[in-house]
């Protein structure tokens, strides 16, 4: 299951989508809106995406993770639009027979999503200013 939604993510529902009698391990990762980045205070985040490519990239990542780690199932839901403090912008659920594969694949999925999938966040700071986040990958 791959989905991009403007609605609040039903995180328990994402977990339920991958769960089965085969899955000895299910890992759920949530990426939430965090209030403080150092001294700076976030009021909310606003996300936009290049939807057709984001869906196609997320499907690629899902297929790769399933075949590489021999997973039972993967679900990724990313929210766009305004995401308030403490709410999830992304939910990734991974089901496998054993825990190591579920943890490793979940970590790879969020890391790779952040590097490759065309989705962008805009910080809305507490002073009212806004800032698109475009990480400088050439320096990392």
């Amino acid at each position: 299951m791959i989905e991009i939604t403007k609605e609040k993510i039903d995180t328990a529902g994402v977990l339920e989508r991958v769960n089965s009698s085969q899955s000895g391990a299910v890992v759920l990762f949530l990426g939430n809106t965090r209030e403080f980045t150092g001294e700076k205070q976030t009021t909310w985040l606003s996300y936009e995406c290049y939807e057709s490519m984001a869906i196609s990239k997320l499907n690629e990542l899902r297929d790769h993770a399933i075949s590489n780690w021999g997973l039972l199932d993967v679900a990724v839901v990313h929210r766009i639009g305004r995401v308030d403090l403490g709410e999830a912008s992304v939910a990734i659920a991974v089901a496998s027979e054993h825990r190591a594969a579920a943890f490793d694949a979940g970590r790879w999925l969020i890391d790779t999503l952040k590097e490759q999938v065309p989705i962008w966040k805009k910080e809305v700071w507490s002073d009212g200013s806004t800032e698109w986040v475009h990480p400088d990958t050439t320096q990392s």
Binding site: A54, H78, L113, E115, P118, I119, W132, H134
Partner: peptide, 12 residues
């Protein structure tokens, strides 16, 4: 069919 300029991404 489609060309897009993709500035550094920041999803998640």
């Amino acid at each position: 069919k489609e060309i897009a300029i993709i500035p550094p991404v920041s999803g998640g």
